[in-house]
Nucleic acid binder design. Sequence first.
DNA 1: ATTATTGCAAAAGATTTGCAGCACC
DNA 2: GGTGCTGCAAATCTTTTGCAATAAT
Lengths: 144, 144
Amino acid sequence: MKKEKEIFKKYLVEKGLKLTSEREQILKEIFSRHDHFDAEALFQVFHDRGEHISRATIYRTLPLLVESGLAQEAMRCGEKICYEHIYGHRLHGHMICMGCGKIIEFENGKLEEIKGKACKKYGFKPTEFRFCVKGYCKDCQKKL
Amino acid sequence: MKKEKEIFKKYLVEKGLKLTSEREQILKEIFSRHDHFDAEALFQVFHDRGEHISRATIYRTLPLLVESGLAQEAMRCGEKICYEHIYGHRLHGHMICMGCGKIIEFENGKLEEIKGKACKKYGFKPTEFRFCVKGYCKDCQKKL
DNA sequence: ATTATTGCAAAAGATTTGCAGCACC
DNA sequence: GGTGCTGCAAATCTTTTGCAATAAT
């Protein structure tokens, strides 16, 4: 069994919840993509593929994935919440272009250090992390 | 005239917009507080004080303050967007407790460095910045 | 005088929820 | 078999928008 499925299953069992086929499909889908997605986009993917999963189920499943540590809210794109899977990923930041919506991911080893230092200082127990820079990408700056 | 008012006025004039008394009140209010706030909270402050400013005006003014560089979206608290004023502040991060909603601000000189490095690498022009860690504060960890 | 702005109320969007039937353990 | 889960549709909540009256330059 894939590691992420194991983690999810373990989390669900501990909470007295069940691993349904819908939850499994959603888990599989978000780990098969490497970009960011929101609830509606996820709904559309299944819909287009003829595998119907209701919006309600998607909205109810995403927080479970977050709580199990497999995903996190990465940013707000307009009014929507965008998620990303995080298991097996290094801490990274995002640059979000307000012109074209492009998202650039970047890594920096110091992110972990800053996060660790702040949490230690205040005895804070971290679950989710987010480093975002909004602005304009190279291409969109030219257009302005 | 206060520096932030000058900046706001300059921004508005450049855009062919006007400095109305509502905009001025909102500006003054957000610079008089040092915490984070959302549109509804701002509406309530004025309402409680008997100075009526409509929600529509608040929702229309906040983006202007962001675009003029005086404020930014700091985080999402639940479904709401929380803002903070940024003029004259150093880059800082937030730790948000999912248990009690407490927000801890922290500074770290390396934030500026990381942001700068990433933007330079991709030719990205930054306008807003956000470093958030969600999790549980010292007190809430005990309660769990 | 001109043009942007305000407040209102209606609209739009995203997300949540109650409920009845269905699926997992 | 019992309890949690799903889909649906209605509800909720935040944010946006059209419009007529009003205020800033």
